[in-house]
Amino acid sequence: MTDRYLSDLAMLQHGDSAFPSGAVSFSWGLEALVNRNSVNDARGVEDFLRAQLEGRWASIDRSILVHAHAAWDNLNRLVTLDGLMDSQSLATELRMGSRRIGRAFLSVHIRLGTLGAAALNENVANGMLYGHAPVVQGAIWREMGFTAEQAQLMAAHGLCSSLLGAAVRLSVIGHFDAQVIRTEITSCIAEIITTPPCKPEEAHGFTPQIEIASMLHETDQSRLFVN
């Protein structure tokens, strides 16, 4: 039972918004949609979050994450997964955002002394890897002993927390709305994770409004967020 507690506590620590992940600077298209009044209330935020989870995370990020977790000690496979992640991210800010999150993640884990983080970072620095978040998270979390299921839960929860936090800071919703939405979305996360992930070579997403908004965000004068 003690091992179970240790594992659960480790997951809470590494999946917590207090863990320095860099996620606070990312809105993944939400800022542009808010600025254009396409998202302006709690309903819109929930729809946006569902679209991110079901239309993109479930079929791209999650697939890459799970397969990177399985291929944690196979650099060639990680390189392939990293390339697939890159090719599935059409909008520049979404693509570069995933790379920046991944690199920041490695930077933190190097300082924490996590085994494998410095080596992965070296592969990013020498151009072998882009360092997309799902790839490095999958590999590093496996190094740390997390299961694939735990890795998915942490990644999904982290995405939800950062997006809802962005929505609060953009003044679209309040803290209570954020928690209501987070509760509503829980079953959605559970359903996604209980479904087998697709093969990474079959990874796909369909969130055109978010992609277009993200492209428009590139040239917006007012930008609080990376994307």
Binding site: W72, D73, L75, L78, I110, A118, A119, N123
Partner: peptide
């Protein structure tokens, strides 16, 4: 021990 870590041990 990670094989990646064994391949590359250079630190910043």
């Amino acid at each position: 021990k990670s094989s990646i870590a064994m391949e590359l041990t250079k630190t910043p």
